[in-house]
Write a protein that binds this DNA or RNA. Structure first.
Length: 452
RNA sequence: GGAGGGGUGGCUGAGUGGUCGAAAGCAGCCGCCUGCUAAGCGGUUGAGGGGACUAAAUCUCCUCCGCGGGUUCGAAUCCCGCCCCCUCCGCCA
C-alpha cells in the first residue's frame, strides 16, 4: 500500500506506475485524491468542534463543582455533539472508501526495472550450468516417477482430485530430504533463522502481504472460521512482525521457513496439467528478509543468490530472469525469477521468485523500526524468495538426473539426507544388498535395554 | 464445549464519570557526580492524524487505555456485541 501523502505529492508517478504494471483503468487515482481532499477539509471542521466540546465540557465540570448551574450550555453542547457525530461518520465513510481504493494501487516499480507489457519484456540476466545432452530420449518426470513407483497421480486424484500427488517410499523421503537440505544450507551457511509458522492464517495477514483483496480467488478459504490456507510461507512469516516497531540494530532479519503451499490455481485450467509443476498443494522453503530501506535492493541480489545456491549444490542448470514492469506483480518493486532447466519442457521453468517489496507490505502490515532509541519509526523493507519450491525441484532432479534404465542418480550433496543413497531405482530403499549407497546402511542391531 | 478471571504506555502496574495520555516503579535517553564497575542526583522519554511552515526544527489541535457500537455536556472508568489471553472442568492427537 502507498501512503496517501505520497500519492498526493506524486500523482503522476503513481499514474505512470499503474500504467507500467498494466493496470490501466483498474485504479482511480483521481477519486483517491478527491477523497483525500474531502477527508482533510472535514477533519479540520470536526476538530474545531471537538476542541469546543472539550473546552466547554471542562468548564461545565468546574461550574458544577462550584455548585453553579451550566444554564443553556448543556443544550448547546448536545447539538455540538450530534454535529460531531455526523461529521465523524462522514469521515469514517470517506476513509473506508479511501482505504479500499488504496489497497488496489500497485507498488511502483524501481527505476532499474525494464518496462514491458508482459513476459516478453523480461530480461535474462545470467545462466549457470549447461543442460545435459542425453544419449537417449529423456522422459518427463511424471513418467519417471510413476515408473519408479515414487509418484502416484492416480491415487492422489482418487483421494483428493486433480493437481495433487502422492509420494511413495523414496519419493516421500526425497521431499523430506530436500526440505532439510535447503533449510540447512540457508541456516548454517547463509545466516537465516528457521521458523515453523502456522499453515493457516487470518484475513489480516493475507491483506498485510497483499494476497488480499486483489488475489482472493487464488486462495483457499476455510468455510467455518474464515482461515486461509497459506499460499506461501511469505504470508505467516512476513506477518510475524505485523504491528511491531523493531529495534533498528536488530536489522536485517533473515528468516527461512518450510510450509506446504495451497493454491486454487483458478484460471490456469489446461496449463501444466501433468506432473508436479502446478499443484493445489506443494512444499516450499521460503526466505524472508526485513531490512533497512537503503539496503533492500542490494539485499535482493543476495537473496536471489542464496536461493540459486541450492541449484548449484544440486548441479541443476538454471538462469535468472529480471521481470519487467508488466509481469512482476502488483506488490513488488523489483523481482527476479530463477528458472531451472526442465528437459521435458525443453526450456527453463520457474522454480523460485525473489522480490523486493520496498515498504509496500510494511505499510499494509504496519511493520516499522527505529534507527535509534529516539528516532521516529520508519517502515522496514520486506523481501522474500523461494529457496526453493520443493515439488519443482523434485521434478528437475528426476528429469535432469535420469538414466537410460529409468533410474535416477541422486545429486551428490543430497545423498547424506537420503542415508547415502546414490541411485533411486524404485519405491523401496529397504534392500541394501542391491541399492547403491555411499556407505552401506547399518543393520539395525538389538535395542539397548531401557534403563530405569 | 462449560465455569470463572483478565486485556491500560517498551515492561510491571495504579486508576470505577470531569482537572487522566494516564500515578508509581523498572527499562531507555541526556546531563552531573564517583579512579573503574556498581550505586547516586537532576531532567527527559508513546503512537497516528490535521493545521501553521518551502522543508527540517518548532508550535498547535484532534484521536488512541484489546476491537466495534451505545449512554452522557463529558467515558480508561457505565451498558451491549466481538476478539484474544489465563485458570479449572469436559473432550481430544
Amino acid at each position: 500500500m502507498l501512503d496517501v501523502k505520497f500519492i498526493r505529492q506524486n500523482p503522476d508517478l503513481v499514474r505512470d506506475a499503474v500504467k507500467k504494471k498494466g493496470m490501466d483503468g483498474e485504479v482511480d487515482i483521481d477519486r483517491i485524491l478527491e477523497l483525500d481532499g474531502r477527508r482533510r477539509s472535514i477533519l479540520s471542521e470536526v476538530e474545531k468542534e471537538k476542541y469546543r466540546r472539550n473546552t466547554v465540557s471542562e468548564k461545565i465540570g468546574e461550574m458544577k463543582k462550584r455548585g453553579e448551574e451550566p444554564v443553556g450550555l448543556l443544550e448547546e453542547m448536545k447539538a455540538v455533539s450530534s454535529h460531531i457525530k455526523e461529521l465523524d461518520e462522514e469521515v469514517a465513510r470517506i476513509e473506508e472508501e479511501l482505504q479500499e481504493l488504496l489497497l488496489w494501487v500497485p507498488n511502483p516499480p524501481h527505476p532499474s526495472v525494464p518496462v514491458g507489457p508482459d513476459e516478453t519484456g523480461n530480461v535474462e540476466v545470467r545462466r549457470w550450468g549447461t543442460p545435459r545432452e542425453f544419449a537417449f530420449e529423456p522422459k518427463a518426470h511424471w513418467d519417471i516417477g510413476s515408473n519408479l513407483g515414487i509418484l502416484d497421480f492416480e491415487r492422489a486424484t482418487k483421494i483428493a482430485g486433480s493437481r495433487f500427488t502422492v509420494f511413495w517410499g523414496v519419493g516421500a523421503r526425497l521431499v523430506r530430504a530436500l526440505i532439510s537440505f535447503m533449510i540447512d544450507l540457508h541456516v548454517k551457511e547463509q545466516g537465516y533463522t528457521e521458523v515453523l509458522p502456522p499453515f493457516m492464517v487470518n484475513e489480516k495477514a493475507m491483506i498485510g502481504t497483499a494476497q488480499l483483496p486483489k488475489f482472493a480467488e487464488d486462495a483457499f478459504r476455510l468455510a467455518g472460521d474464515g482461515f486461509y490456507l497459506v499460499p506461501t510461507a511469505e504470508v505467516p512469516v512476513t506477518n510475524l512482525h505485523r504491528e511491531e516497531i523493531l529495534d533498528g540494530s536488530e536489522l536485517p532479519l533473515y528468516y527461512v521457513a518450510y510450509t506446504p503451499c495451497f493454491r486454487s490455481e483458478a484460471g490456469s485450467h489446461g496449463k501444466d496439467t501433468r506432473g508436479l509443476i502446478r499443484q493445489h498443494q506443494f512444499d516450499k522453503v521460503e526466505l524472508v528478509k526485513f531490512v533497512l530501506p537503503e539496503t533492500s535492493f542490494e539485499e535482493l541480489e543476495r537473496l536471489t543468490e542464496d536461493a540459486a545456491e541450492v541449484l548449484r549444490r544440486l548441479d541443476l542448470p538454471y538462469r535468472v530472469i529480471e521481470m519487467c514492469t508488466g509481469d512482476m506483480g502488483f506488490a513488488q518493486a523489483k523481482k527476479y525469477d530463477i528458472e531451472v532447466w526442465m528437459p521435458s519442457y525443453g526450456r527453463y521453468v520457474e522454480i523460485s521468485s525473489c522480490s523486493n517489496f520496498g515498504d509496500f507490505q510494511a505499510r499494509r502490515a504496519n511493520i516499522r523500526f527505529r534507527r535509534t532509541a529516539r528516532s521516529r519509526p520508519e517502515y522496514v523493507h520486506t523481501l522474500n524468495g523461494s529457496g526453493l519450491a520443493v515439488g519443482r525441484t523434485v521434478a528437475a532432479i528426476l528429469e535432469n538426473c535420469q538414466e537410460a534404465d529409468g533410474s535416477v542418480t541422486v545429486p551428490r550433496e543430497l545423498r547424506p539426507y537420503l542415508g547415502g543413497l546414490k541411485r533411486i531405482e524404485g519405491r523401496s530403499e529397504k534392500d541394501p544388498a542391491t541399492a547403491e549407497f555411499d556407505e552401506k546402511p547399518q543393520k539395525p542391531g538389538r535395542r539397548p535395554p531401557v534403563s530405569k
